[in-house]
């Protein structure tokens, strides 16, 4: 009897801890939401209260004064291109690494692994881009992002391909398929579960990147979250507009999060559990 009481109070304590933790996360979002709908004077007081009248006009003003729409287009264009290119290239490379037993395959595996451990050399990359005339071009930004996302994508794909039986390849080859044909018709569709993880993971990475955009691209190529940076510089005393702009920047992320959370968790934990 006494024990159950003790046990229960411990459980209640843990529940209380989690409620407090959750509030630490929900309150900032709440403050952003309510203040994005107030007038300038009210919003600058950064309070918790629900606005007396709803100023949806803030959002219209943000769209008029910021380049949020351009940011959305940039973000989607760069993100989608990188995701497609990196996905195909990584899957093909991983297929070779996982299947071929040669020394070169082992070398490539280690070669890409360095990309996970060694940090990116930004300044020398800037020089490379300068020589190739790729600074501040979509082609340049996309190439860099694909190169940066390849190592982890290949790592994820290689682990998955090793679990697919080789007999599938053999059957296809006996049927007379050519290697590339066999890969795209038979193997690639089997990789769908890990492909989704790779897509979600890479897209979030590219969408939220700060460093690469600051170093290698001008403001007209920035994605939506980075446009907040520009907006903040101009309207740092107008929290009504700033919060509205932040809302516009995080809503696509939230939708993406709700849809893809499962795959983000899968991507993060792949390799963190010993199999």
């Amino acid at each position: 009897m006494k024990r159950t009481f003790k046990f229960r109070s411990a459980t209640w304590l843990l529940e209380a801890v989690m409620v407090v933790v959750a509030l630490c996360y929900l309150m900032p979002i709440w403050i952003v939401v309510v203040n994005s709908l107030k007038d300038t004077l009210g919003a600058n007081r950064l309070g918790y209260s629900w606005p007396k009248s709803l100023h949806f006009n803030n959002y219209a003003q943000v769209f008029a004064k910021s380049n949020a729409l351009q940011g959305l287009t940039n973000g989607v264009f760069i993100g989608v291109t990188v995701v497609i290119l990196a996905g195909f290239l990584a899957a093909m490379a991983a297929y070779y690494i996982a299947r071929k037993g040669s020394g070169f395959a082992k070398f490539t595996s280690l070669y890409f692994l360095t990309g996970i451990i060694v940090p990116t050399a930004i300044i020398p990359t800037y020089f490379t881009m300068l020589v190739l005339h790729l600074n501040n071009t979509y082609l340049g930004i996309i190439s860099i992002f694909v190169a940066y996302t390849l190592p982890l994508s290949i790592f994820l794909y290689t682990g998955f391909i090793r679990t697919i039986p080789r007999e599938i390849d053999e059957a296809a080859i006996i049927d007379g398929s050519r290697p590339i044909q066999m890969f795209f018709r038979i193997v690639f569709p089997l990789l769908a579960p890990v492909t989704v993880t790779v897509i979600v993971f890479n897209f979030i990475g590219v969408w939220n990147d700060v460093t690469t955009y600051l170093y290698f691209a001008g403001g007209d190529k920035w994605p939506l979250p980075m446009t907040v940076f520009k907006f903040y510089g101009k309207f740092s005393q107008r929290w009504d507009l700033l919060f509205a702009d932040i809302m516009i920047a995080i809503i696509p992320c939230l939708i993406f999060f709700v849809a893809g959370q499962k795959y983000m968790v899968a991507g993060i934990t792949a390799g963190s559990v010993k199999s």
Partner: peptide
């Protein structure tokens, strides 16, 4: 079978990664 895993599979990724990651490093 092993002969079917052409090095062409890994080459595009290899070149891009070399040019924008290994070479700068």
């Amino acid at each position: 079978i092993s002969g079917q895993y052409s090095v062409l599979f890994v080459l595009p990724a290899f070149c891009l990664f070399s040019l924008f990651f290994i070479l700068p490093n």
